[in-house]
Design a protein around this nucleic acid. Structure first.
Ligand SMILES: [Mn+2]
Ligand SMILES: [Mn+2]
Ligand SMILES: [Zn+2]
Ligand SMILES: [Zn+2]
Lengths: 149, 149
DNA sequence: TTGCTATTGCGAATCAATTGCAATAGCTGT
DNA sequence: ACAGCTATTGCAATTGATTCGCAATAGCAA
C-alpha cells in the first residue's frame, strides 16, 4: 500500500503522528472522484468510526491540505463552503451548473499561461490560483432560457 | 450626473426605491479605485451619514451586485471576506501578495478564451468566473525566499 | 513499559453575513 | 400638499461553517 506508507512517512517528516482518523479521512478522498465538503467527509468517515468528531475532520483536512495531499476548492459564486479532492487528479478547474448543481471539470493550459506571462512581466511568483466558473450546462441552458421569459 | 440618473432609473425598473443610503454606498465604490469590504464601505459611508447601519450596507451591496453596478470579489486563498469594486473598471483579475498584502490587477484575454472554448466544446453557458491568484510580488519574492531557509 | 507530547472529542467561541420586526420614508395617485 | 401603500431602514438577534481551549487519550521513541 504505497499511499499509506507515503502518508505515514510524510506525517513523520513533519513531526506528526499517524492516526486512524487521518488514514480514514485521506482514504475517503483518495477513493472518491467527488468533491466533498467537511460535513460530507464527516458523514462518510463516521460510518467507519462512529466516535469521530467533526473538529477532527476539519483539523485533518487542514493538515492534509498543508501537506499537499488534497486540494481545497471553492465552487459557485458564493464561497460559503470549502470542498476537497485528492491531488492525484492533476491540474484542473471547475464549472458549476446553477441548474443541476453538477460540477464539471475543465482542463486547460491557459490559466498556467496567464501566471507565466504575469510572472515574466512583473517578477511575481505564484503560489496558488483559485479559479471557478459558474453558468448552465448544456442540459440546463434551455430551462434557464425559459425561466427568464 | 449621468450615474445618478442611471442608478435611479435602474432601481425603478426593478421596482426598488432610490434612497440616500444607496446613492452614498454606490458613490463610494465609484469614486475609489480600491477594493473595499462591507466593513470599510460602512466606515467610509458612516462619515457622511452617521445613522447608517451595517445591515443596510450589506443589503445595498447585495442589490448593487445583482444590478451589476458593482462586482463582488474574493481575494487570497481563504475567502473569508467579500470585497467590492465598481464595474466601471472593466474585465480584470487579481493577484494578492502574501508578503505585503498588495492587490495587483491582472489583465488578460485568456480567461474569456477558456470560457469560449469550453462553451464551444460542451454547450455550456457562462454567467460568472471567479479568478484569484496568490503569491509574492516582485518586491516580496526575495524576503520570502529568505524566510524559507 | 514508560514518558513525552501530539492528537482527539467535546463544548464553547468566532465572525462575516443574514434575518425578523416595528418604525420610517419613497413614491404614486389624488 | 396629502394620503396610502409598501419598500427600506435601524436594531438586535441569529446563522452556520469553521476554529479554539482544554482535559483525556493515544502515538511513538527510548
Ligand atoms: Mn476537481
Ligand atoms: Mn479590481
Ligand atoms: Zn446543469
Ligand atoms: Zn508584496
Amino acid at each position: 500500500m504505497e499511499s499509506k506508507n507515503s502518508l505515514e512517512s510524510r506525517l513523520r517528516a513533519a513531526g506528526r503522528r499517524m492516526t486512524p482518523q487521518r488514514k480514514l479521512i485521506l482514504s475517503i478522498l483518495d477513493q472518491t472522484g467527488d468533491h466533498l465538503d467537511a460535513e460530507e467527509v464527516y458523514r462518510r468517515a463516521k460510518q467507519q468510526n462512529s466516535n469521530l468528531n467533526i473538529a477532527t475532520v476539519y483539523r485533518t483536512l487542514s493538515i492534509l491540505k498543508d501537506m499537499e495531499l488534497i486540494e481545497q476548492r471553492y465552487f459557485a459564486r458564493d464561497h460559503n463552503v470549502e470542498y476537497y479532492e485528492s491531488v492525484n487528479k492533476g491540474e484542473h478547474y471547475h464549472f458549476t451548473c446553477l441548474g443541476c448543481r453538477k460540477i464539471i471539470e475543465v482542463e486547460t493550459p491557459k490559466i498556467v499561461q496567464v501566471q507565466k506571462e504575469f510572472s515574466a512581466l512583473t517578477g511575481a511568483k505564484f503560489t496558488h490560483a483559485c479559479v471557478c466558473f459558474e453558468g448552465y450546462c448544456a442540459n440546463c441552458v434551455n430551462d434557464e432560457e425559459n425561466l427568464t421569459l
